[in-house]
Write a protein that binds this DNA or RNA. Structure first.
Lengths: 145, 145
DNA sequence: AGGTAAATTGAAAACCAATTTCAAAGGGGC
DNA sequence: GCCCCTTTGAAATTGGTTTTCAATTTACCT
């Protein structure tokens, strides 16, 4: 994790931004709980130990995270932007349970390749993509009425 | 197109809702321009010929469209919900040009099959999915700086 | 260290699309 | 036509996001 904190500091100084106590705290907390947090989720978690930190600061800091590549903004249609920490791994997509909200990550290079092909067929150059599969997870299927 | 208007009327009466002048007008306009319209897009188009129709009515009517299957709500991350008329065809996904905003529809059963497989591997039952590929369309690639 | 310019912070306000409220107007079954 | 219930449109509200602004903090210079 240390290298990500360094990456963040480097990005800040490179952009003429400043390294502050709040930004360090927010990054620590963000890295600790790496699930798909909304700004509010993170704000509420932080507030327990650091009541002084404002919502706006969390919001702005998450924005910087996604600018410098530490986090990626996601939007699963529930009206909230969520941020996930970008591990150095491959791109991945999501299975989302409509019942309990569980989010499972997956990657499938075969799907990615087919996407490339579709894009090529239409003369498109891919910049990014997103694939979300909504449904019922194993647990919720069993509990279904 | 006539059968879709009938479908809508049937849905309304079946739900105990009423067939009104505004709903007919909105449906006509929606079917005429079948691109990916936001509520505001449609509202503005309608206002030219029918200044009396309010935004709330357009909003509520589009909601009914998606309830009865005439339209599907889409969300491409620009902060606005867009509605597309569901032709009786297969499910389809989208290629979206980041430069000019062009939206191209495509379908690929191979990708869908792989999605099914991924879901199965995780014990998931698919309810719906969405796949969006963002990039540059052929035209915008040529004009690129 | 101390000074200074520029960035940051937090509370509150603004924003913006989506959604709801409510009184007036409009359907449609009788 | 009558009555009950739905719909309409303007305006207000909501909820997440984003900006404003005065006070504070940071980074850099000497």
């Amino acid at each position: 994790m240390g290298e990500r904190k360094q990456l963040f500091r480097d990005y800040l100084s490179q952009q003429g931004l400043k390294s502050t106590r709040q930004r360090e705290i927010i990054l620590d907390e963000f890295l600790r709980c790496d699930s798909h947090l909304s700004t509010e989720d993170l704000y509420l978690k932080l507030r327990k130990k650091h009541p002084g930190i404002g919502y706006a600061t969390v919001y702005r800091t998450l924005k910087i995270f996604s600018e410098c590549g530490i986090a990626a903004a996601r939007n699963f249609g529930d009206g909230q932007t969520r941020y996930e920490s970008t591990t150095c791994e491959e791109h991945h997509d999501h299975l989302i349970c409509k019942e309990c909200g569980a989010i499972i990550e997956f990657e499938d290079t075969r799907i990615e390749q087919l996407q490339e092909q579709v894009a090529r067929d239409h003369g498109f150059t891919i910049v990014s993509h997103r694939l979300e599969i909504f449904g019922l997870c194993a647990k919720c299927q069993k509990q279904a009425p």
